[in-house]
Design a protein around this nucleic acid. Structure first.
Ligand SMILES: [Zn+2]
Ligand SMILES: [Zn+2]
Ligand SMILES: [Zn+2]
Ligand SMILES: [Zn+2]
Lengths: 144, 144
DNA sequence: GGAGTTAATGTTATAACGTAACATACGTGG
DNA sequence: CCACGTATGTTACGTTATAACATTAACTCC
C-alpha cells in the first residue's frame, strides 16, 4: 500500500480516494475478486458507487502494474512486484481459490523461442494454470 | 467436419443437428467467434434458438476437443487437432484477429518444471499470447 | 487569483456474456 | 409400447463490462 503510493508519486500518477479504496479492497481479499464484489464492498459502508468507477479504477491500477486481471476468472488480484516490469503468470487452485503469481522467466523464455519460430511479436502474455496447489493436493480433494 | 463425425461416432457421442450447425459456424469464421455471434448466425436463416442451446453445444464440442475457448476474448475457435489429446496454446493477433494454435510442447515442459518447484498439480493450462502475427508485423501496424 | 486546460468522477443506460430451473421431445433397447 | 437416459425448448435471470455525456476537481500559466 505504501509501495503503491510510492510508485504513483514517482510516476506522477494520482492515487485518488476511489483508486485507493479499490486497491485496498483487492488486497483485502485472499482470493481473486470480481469487479462487482469490489463494488459491493465499497457500497456496503457508504453510498452508491457505479460499476464504471470501479472499472476505471481497476484500469488505472492495471496500467500501473498494481493489479492483475485473471482472464479465466474475470477477477482481479493485487501484484506484490508492482514496481518491476514483469509479465504475470498465475497458478490458480480450484480448491482454495488461491492465485499465486509465479516466476515466469523460464516459461517466458520457452514462449519466446516458440514465437520466433512463428514470427510472432508478443505484447501480452496470458498464462493461467489451473489445478491444485501444494497444500490442497495433500488434502482429500478430488476432481469436481 | 468429417473428422468431427468420425470422432463422435468413435466415442458414441451424437453430433446432432444443432451441434453440427454450431461447429460449422465456428469454422466458418476466420477469427475466434463469440457465442452470441454464433447465435446470430444460426438465427439469421431460420428461427429462434436460445443462448442456452448454443452454450450447450459449445460445451459438448469442447468436451470432445472439437472447439477451444479463448478466455481472454470470450470467444471460441475450432481445433484442427481434435483427435489428439493436447493442451491448446494460442497466438492471437490484435491486428487481423487471427488465433493460431501453436505447438506448446516446449512451453508445457517449462511450465511443468516451474510447477513442480511450487508443488502445484496442473489440470488446465490457459496460455494465450497476444501480439502481432508475422504477416501483420510486416505491415504498418502500430501500437493501439 | 482567475481563465484555460486536462484529468477524474458522476450518471444513466445498455451491451455482452453466461446460467438456473423446469418442461418437453426424442431415441434406444426391453 | 414403455421406461430410461439424453438432448432440446423455454423462460427468466445473473454476471460482467462499456458507451456516452455531464459535472467536478486539479493543475498551469500568466
Ligand atoms: Zn505481478
Ligand atoms: Zn489450494
Ligand atoms: Zn486444439
Ligand atoms: Zn495478424
Amino acid at each position: 500500500m505504501r509501495t503503491a503510493e510510492a510508485i504513483c508519486t514517482k510516476r506522477g500518477a494520482r492515487l485518488t480516494d476511489i483508486r485507493r479504496r479499490v486497491l485496498t479492497s483487492v488486497w483485502s481479499s485472499h482470493a481473486p475478486i470480481g469487479a462487482y464484489d469490489i463494488l459491493a464492498g465499497l457500497n456496503a459502508d457508504s453510498g452508491k458507487i457505479a460499476p464504471m468507477a470501479v472499472y476505471r479504477a481497476l484500469d488505472f491500477l492495471m496500467e500501473h502494474g498494481l493489479v492483475h486481471r485473471l482472464a479465466s476468472l474475470n477477477a482481479f488480484i493485487g501484484c506484490a512486484l508492482a514496481d518491476e516490469r514483469h509479465t504475470a503468470h498465475f497458478l490458480i487452485c480450484r480448491a482454495c481459490k488461491s492465485a499465486t503469481e509465479m516466476d515466469g522467466a523460464a516459461v517466458t523464455r520457452a514462449v519466446k523461442k516458440t514465437l520466433t519460430a512463428h514470427g510472432f511479436i508478443p505484447e501480452i502474455e496470458i498464462i493461467e494454470i489451473q489445478g491444485l496447489c501444494a497444500h490442497c493436493s495433500d488434502q482429500d480433494v478430488r476432481r469436481p
